[in-house]
Design a protein around this nucleic acid. Structure first.
Lengths: 346, 346
DNA sequence: TCGGAAACTGTAAGCGCTTCCATTTTGACT
DNA sequence: AGTCAAAATGGAAGCGCTTACAGTTTCCGA
């Protein structure tokens, strides 16, 4: 862009002509590379400003053989977590001069064309585990594209970053079991994502370590509608349980409210927990006990790891696991009665 | 990317060599342009696959003088709205073969360098009103970059899309006034964004049309902490009001809960409303009356408008305004007692 | 069997930048 | 004034792709 003499965008040639210097010098001034006299610098700046010169990144990318851009592939953007992840990512990237090209796969059956195009625009790609088939990732690996996986089990040749799940889930479940709630159910389909499967692993471990039989998971989608439906099923069938360990907050919240509306007292009759600590978890009554993941930090770290790979400052694969935080609220019957909403989201 | 014979990424020349064809034919096959024999097509596909060929977008962009990418500049990603906006945007863009390069300004004091770099990578830019100084936008205009503004008053030479605010705010405020709540306050700083200022305009209009004096706005930040602090101030000073029309849900929710904790009964003693319809608004008790904006649609439309501008299929500026939806819940005392949570976010 | 249009393929000229290398200018010392 | 290293500048060769144009093949009808 920029308006050159002909009406077409100004190029480095236009700037050079106006400044009466060579394009080499213009480039040096604009990129701050190489030695340039103060006079030249001033003339170039003036000319560039006068012409509204905007350097064409494609030309630079072609010349320097680098895009200075990251690709980020997410499955979705619903819920606050992806937003936080993206925010942490973009922040780090921006501070390090990297652009972020975002691709959301939704339920897109075959994103491989899109992903290939993406690969041609960036220096490396961060892929969320739920966003892409492993085969597509392997394809990229074969094409030598630096890859960082988020919330995905480690894959040879790729770095990965994720949040700890199994151990917090075990801790949470143990806590419920120890507070006299033996009949617990895990609500959510472990097959829906790696994270969820890990949560179920932790849930199971708590039972197993006590010599108890591990309840089968209640395989429902991780949505509010599914939670409501599930809770209604419990109410109608008068199924007796001590607690519901839900795979995410959407489920937990919907179940909490639906049970409440159905006359079940939480946490006295049944305890309920979620995962993610969405804002609503603090506002529902009783407050929803849940697990907070450091999503922004996860994004930040993913960006950093990818950058290390791209620049080649690290060649050995790394698999980072970030700690989570158990947030106790009223719904589990073992924490403080209620937690006041205090976190700001300004 | 892709692994060429030398270990460096494969180029179109490598593919051509392997397929024993010219690069022109390879290009035609890969882009699906021009006539090619089935035999050639097969050989190229085979060779490309064998070499893991990933076309370098920068080279194509340079040659075709187009990036096939949009820039999207947002102020932030906190809260669900920007996520929804982004999602709607990305979806439309993806379906039309456009990549999305995201830039978040946070509180970045001088993003102009970043924005200039962005301008060099894309065919046009969508800017959220809260993200950039008008001066920066004007700069881009001068450089002839197609611009679409979101949630910003129209600017000559730019398209704009926003959601309707004033009239819904007036409608909401009128409703409260007519239900015998004369002493209302507007909570939130109208100067913080165009949207908020419009909400206050609507609030004011409701008073003015009834010959009532318009209350000055309570200028607090649009955050939960500010809401909590404000509510505490009300409680401590025992200020008597009939209702609080909050500039967003964060404020509304924090105030709702803090007042409740302080012994004030909502909606009997005081009515409270918010704006945005975040998930928590459905889970807090009483449910928060609020206004829902079609964020995904806003994003979709912004993408479309920008595309029209880029392709030149439209040259006259357009300024679209999308309708909003009043969501009545318990907190305003004029709607249904409570609204069950029904919307899924799977 | 042949002519000519249609289908296909190749050659080469850019697109706008960076950067190596050579050349010119500058300026600090003799 | 003259020398020489250092600083500043310019010329020109790519980076990998698209595409206009020209050249070659194919294939149909006469």
């Amino acid at each position: 862009m920029g308006s050159g003499p002909t009406g077409r965008p100004a190029t480095i040639y236009d700037v050079a002509a106006l400044a009466k210097l060579s394009i080499a010098t213009v480039s040096r001034v604009l990129q701050g590379t190489g030695p340039v006299s103060a006079k030249a610098r001033a003339r170039v700046d003036q000319a560039a400003h006068e012409l509204n010169y905007v350097p064409l990144r494609a030309a630079r990318s072609l010349a320097v053989q680098r895009h200075e851009a990251h690709g980020l592939v997410l499955p979705d953007l619903a819920g606050p977590f992806y937003g936080d992840l993206l925010m942490g990512y973009e922040r780090w990237a921006g501070e390090h001069g990297q652009s972020v090209i975002l691709t959301v796969t939704h339920g897109n059956p075959d994103p491989s064309r899109t992903i290939r195009d993406l690969a041609g625009r960036v220096d490396g790609i961060v892929v969320h585990g739920n966003a892409l088939e492993l085969a597509v990732v392997q394809d990229l690996r074969r094409a030598n594209v630096p890859i960082v996986l988020v919330a995905h089990p480690p894959v040879t040749g790729c770095d990965s970053v994720r949040t700890e799940s199994a151990s917090s889930a075990e801790q949470l479940t143990s806590r419920l079991l120890e507070h006299g709630r033996p009949k617990l159910l895990f609500v959510g389909d472990p097959d829906s994502s790696y994270d969820v499967s890990e949560r179920y692993v932790g849930f199971s471990a708590a039972f197993r370590s006590r010599g108890l039989e591990v309840p089968k998971p209640e395989r429902v989608p991780l949505t509010e509608t599914a939670g409501e439906a599930y809770a209604n099923k419990l109410l109608e069938a008068s199924i007796r349980v001590d607690g519901l360990v839900c795979a995410n907050d959407e489920l937990g919240l919907a179940i909490l409210n639906t049970l409440g509306d159905g006359g079940v007292v939480v946490p006295d009759d049944v305890v309920v927990t979620g995962w993610d600590d969405v804002m609503a978890a603090r506002y529902v009554r009783p407050g929803l006990t849940t697990v907070r993941q450091p999503m922004a930090e996860l994004g930040r770290l993913a960006a950093q790891r990818l950058h290390e790979r791209i620049t080649g400052e690290r060649t050995r694969a790394r698999n980072d696991v970030l700690g989570t935080e158990l947030v106790l609220r009223g719904s589990c019957g073992t924490g403080p009665g209620e937690t006041k909403a205090t976190r700001s989201t300004g």
